[in-house]
Design a protein around this nucleic acid. Structure first.
Length: 333
DNA sequence: TACACTACCGACAATTAGGG
DNA sequence: CCCTAATTGTCGGTAGTGTA
């Protein structure tokens, strides 16, 4: 672990040998010369959704196609290179062969005495032999038999794998749906009421911070109240450069001061009269996510302001460089 | 005054990479 | 596999502005 290179990502994490492509990174580590434009289009149209035709399936089909192309000289004369799906009707024709087979068998039973057959009938009889009776003669016809056998085996293998993949995906999907249903149920029942203290638990009437009672802050809901309390407890630069206190310490950003965060918990709990035993769950279920986003927005807003400020400074400097004589004023807001 | 349009902001969902 | 923080896109609400 120590031998690995460590660096701080743009997201502010300490990373050892990053392997995966992130949306913010400019060059995805793939050697293909597929245009990035295409990737962007896919992502834009259906963000996060994988196209239905996965590479796995296509590669499997392409293997079949490759085998079919071995002696596929018969009618593959022109412009077929661009149309791989053309191979699909082949399998259908094979099933049609099977139907013909049945018909021919029934008809042959009635016409066994007929010794002279036309050319079409001969070829049909040869096709019939491929299913059950294999003749290993080194004729072009037999190579066709082998090819059909290979195709048939490949298709059956492929369908078996496809069934297996489908089963596993359905299982995963079912698990996810179950989890989603459970979380929906939990969301439905997670109103703040269920965390409120039902007993006559004592609550503080004031949570003081530098002479200001935090419980006096008015807000339309607990989310807004939490944000306002954080704005009171922490300076703007602390909010923009920190993350919520947690047990994880692998992030490069420092955590918000724990002492004041305990005061924050006290304020929220007393403001909304949440049971002491249920507060942890309330915070994790109802508040934490909102506050994480809040800190992100603070950072975003700060960066935006800073960019504007830098641009203004640049413009001021340019003006000073041109017309100059007065030094920059420090009350430029 | 009412309506339409635009821009902005906050909240949220989806997704990512990395760690436990 | 599940958790986290971080990033990005989308949606709804709202304020500001212009016009009939």
């Amino acid at each position: 672990m120590n031998t690995q290179t460590r660096k701080v990502t743009s997201r502010g994490r300490v990373v050892t040998n990053p392997k995966r492509f992130t949306p913010s990174s400019l060059s995805p580590p793939q050697p293909t010369n597929q245009p990035l434009k295409a990737l962007n289009v896919i992502r834009h149209v259906q963000p996060g959704k994988r196209p239905m035709g996965t590479n796995r399936v296509r590669s499997r089909l392409s293997s079949i196609e490759n085998q079919m192309n071995i002696d596929d000289d018969d009618d593959s004369d022109e412009a077929d290179d661009d149309q791989p799906p053309k191979k699909i009707p082949r399998t259908i024709s094979r099933s049609q062969f099977d139907e013909l087979e049945d018909n021919e068998e029934s008809s042959q039973e009635s016409m066994t005495n007929d010794s002279c057959q036309s050319d079409e009938e001969e070829t049909t009889a040869i096709e019939n032999n491929t299913a059950s009776r294999i003749n290993y003669e080194s004729t072009p016809v037999n190579s066709g038999h082998n090819l059909y056998k290979l195709i048939g085996k490949d298709i059956s293998d492929f369908s078996a794998k496809l069934n297996y993949l489908l089963d596993t995906h359905m299982e995963r999907l079912e698990k996810r749906l179950n989890r989603l249903a459970a979380s929906c149920l939990s969301i439905k029942t997670t109103s703040i009421e269920q965390f409120r203290s039902s007993s006559n638990e004592e609550f503080e009437s004031a949570v003081d911070h530098e002479g200001f009672n935090l419980l006096q802050i008015y807000a339309k809901d607990y989310g807004e109240y939490a944000r306002q309390v954080l704005r009171v407890l922490y300076k703007p630069d602390e909010l923009t450069s920190s993350i919520l206190p947690s047990s994880c310490n692998h992030f490069s950003r420092k955590q918000l001061d724990n002492e004041r965060f305990r005061k924050f918990h006290r304020a929220v709990r007393n403001k909304y009269r949440i049971s002491r035993s249920a507060y942890d769950e309330f915070f994790n279920v109802c508040l934490r996510r909102k506050l994480v986003n809040f800190l992100c927005y603070e950072r975003k807003r700060f960066n935006k302001k800073q960019k504007i400020y830098e641009q203004e400074q640049q413009i001021l400097n340019n003006n000073d460089g041109n017309t100059n004589p007065t030094p920059p004023n420090d009350n430029n807001e």
